[in-house]
Nucleic acid binder design. Structure first.
Length: 551
DNA sequence: TATTTAAGCGCC
DNA sequence: AAAGGGCGCTTAAATA
């Protein structure tokens, strides 16, 4: 059963569809959306909601105290089906772009109201849903891309729920960290005292009393006057230089970064009521990873300040990280038994060393990253042949993806997300030597992208399945049957997601159960994507009071 | 003055 | 160690 919600000029409607997509009832006008959804959600197996855009429907429902179990997000699914090589022959894929291909419009001030009436893009949700079902049904293995659409939609629900719940954030802890590092909070537009002291040290050693180190050209000039030959002012380039100005300069850069990216202004703008509420964008990255938007910078939270993420009294944070996810995904994608074997004991990189392919764990890691990113030179490039010899199937898999990209072809993840078309990169007989060089460089760049796309994209699919499964498992924790409905934030719930890592906030007595569910959900995700393949997806779990204690 | 681009750096 | 994939954000610099 599907429950299709639409917004039109005359208001909201609900249409029930049976499993074959036929109209079973409706469309009926919906007057009280919150009540309507709540009633349906109380009925087990009531169906899956179908709507244009989770980010426009769900936040209002959550504010009204209503949680949704399952949905189809037509906008997110359209983006996948529009591009997927598996549905390339479908009417949907061949149709002209329309409103369903557009990104979510920016919300009006104050966000979307629960009962807002708005026009849907171009065609009704029922029509779009039918087109999407037809596209899926015509594929060789509808369950494959069907799983991707369900996982993507579950991700949209989770993103809204995590924003609603918020990441517990202790302002006073954060403030203490900033004061310790930079000095106490200064007046607006002044540098904190410790930072100012470090700056003076830089100015003195470079003999430039008015230096603004935040200006790369100015800094470059000052370094030049001191006799330091550098191409840029990047920290990693400065690191190796032996000069009394370098240490304080690197320290200043560290401080300046913290102040501007996650300082007091960030705190004022992003933390309220003891919660940080990131604005996640599911599917925001071409590979299927999530993006984020707004000043929060949720996916770039520095390790340095994670200690400000503190569980509520009597609660714990369960921090779970999928260990070496991308290499394991590659092993599974390529059915490389040797690499799967290397990861079976726990530490994949240690397993690679044990196999004799390389001599140290650090080398194993560098070589693997190089294989997945397309390194050609440096340490990583040199180690690659050794890896290729030990794990020919895995390396051939990424090499094939790279060659396909260089030829201008599309590559596709395990569940069916395809890479976007690249720019031509070709040249004709009128091309100059420079044109040819440029075109080849572009082709190689495209190859590095497609090489990484298959791994990163499939890892993102695994992570979505992991998190969606975990969400379902958490729901059943700590509440007996028949206790009635309650706010989901009263029990174990997801509060953070970072590509291959999740954080669950839960009452203390549930933490160990949560840990078990996290591991079980990871095993489920592996089976969902790869069936019986003997590739394991171990999870590192830490039960902590603050996020800084994890790892 | 307002908007866009580039540099640099944080995360995976 | 500093070459390779994907992002977003802040500041300074460049442009309109």
């Amino acid at each position: 059963m599907y429950l299709v919600l639409s917004r039109g000029p005359v208001g909201m409607t609900l249409t029930e569809l049976d499993d074959s997509g036929g109209v079973a009832r409706g469309p009926d006008e919906v007057v009280d959306l919150g009540a309507e959804v709540a009633i349906r959600e109380r009925t087990p197996g009531a169906g899956r909601w179908v709507w244009d855009d989770t980010s426009r429907w769900y936040p209002g429902l959550l504010r009204a105290g209503v949680r949704v179990d399952r949905c189809i997000d037509l906008r997110l699914c359209r983006a996948i089906l529009r591009n997927s090589s598996l549905t390339a022959a479908s009417a949907l894929s061949r149709s002209a772009r329309d409103g369903w291909d557009e990104p979510t419009p920016e919300p009006r001030r104050g966000g979307y109201a629960l009962f807002e009436v708005d026009d849907e893009p171009d065609d009704g949700a029922i029509g779009e849903f039918a087109r999407q079902r037809a596209a899926v049904a015509a594929t060789a293995d509808p369950a494959r891309i069907g799983l991707l659409l369900a996982a993507e939609s579950a991700g949209a629900l989770i993103a809204a729920e995590m924003r609603f719940a918020g990441l517990p954030w202790r302002t006073e802890v954060h403030d203490a960290m900033l004061s310790e590092l930079l000095g106490p909070r200064p007046m607006a537009d002044h540098r904190p005292a410790k930072m100012q002291a470090v700056l003076e040290s830089v100015r003195e050693t470079l003999d430039t009393p008015t230096l603004n180190p935040d200006s790369p050209p100015e800094l470059l000039a000052a370094l030049g006057r001191a006799g330091l030959q550098v191409q840029s002012t990047r920290s990693w380039e400065l690191q190796s230089i032996d000069h009394p100005a370098i240490a304080p300069l690197l320290e200043y850069k560290k401080m300046a970064r913290m102040l501007s990216a996650n300082g007091w202004n960030w705190l004022d703008a992003n933390v309220a009521g003891g919660r940080f509420r990131p604005d996640y964008v599911p599917g925001g990255v071409v590979t299927g990873r999530w993006a984020s938007k707004g000043g929060g910078g949720a996916l770039q939270l520095p390790r340095q300040i994670r200690g400000a993420v503190v569980a509520d009294p009597g609660w714990k944070l369960v921090v779970a990280d999928a260990a070496q996810l991308e290499p394991r995904i590659l092993a599974a994608l390529s059915s490389d038994r040797g690499m799967a074997e290397a990861g079976s004991a726990g530490d994949l990189y240690a397993g690679i060393v044990a196999s004799g392919a390389v001599d140290t764990r650090a080398h194993a890691k560098i070589a693997m990253l190089g294989a997945m990113y397309g390194a050609t030179s440096g340490e990583s490039g040199r180690l690659l042949p050794r890896l290729a010899k030990a794990y020919p199937r895995a390396i051939a898999f990424v090499e094939d993806a790279a060659r396909a990209g260089e030829r201008g072809e599309v590559v596709t993840t395990r569940l069916g997300r395809s890479s976007p078309l690249g720019t031509s990169g070709g040249y004709d007989e009128t091309a100059t030597a420079a044109d040819v060089t440029r075109a080849r460089a572009q082709a190689r760049s495209r190859g590095r992208f497609t090489r990484n796309f298959v791994v990163q994209g499939t890892a993102a699919e695994w992570a979505l399945c992991w998190m969606a499964g975990l969400r379902g498992r958490l729901l059943g924790l700590g509440q007996g049957v028949g206790q009635g409905r309650r706010e989901f934030t009263a029990g174990a719930h997801l509060v953070f997601f970072l590509h291959d890592e999740v954080v669950v906030h839960c009452p203390e007595d549930l933490a160990e159960q949560v840990e078990r569910e996290v591991r079980a959900a990871a095993a489920d995700a592996g089976r969902l994507l790869f069936g019986a393949l003997p590739v394991e997806f171990p999870v590192t779990v830490a039960i902590v009071d603050d996020y800084g204690q994890a790892k």
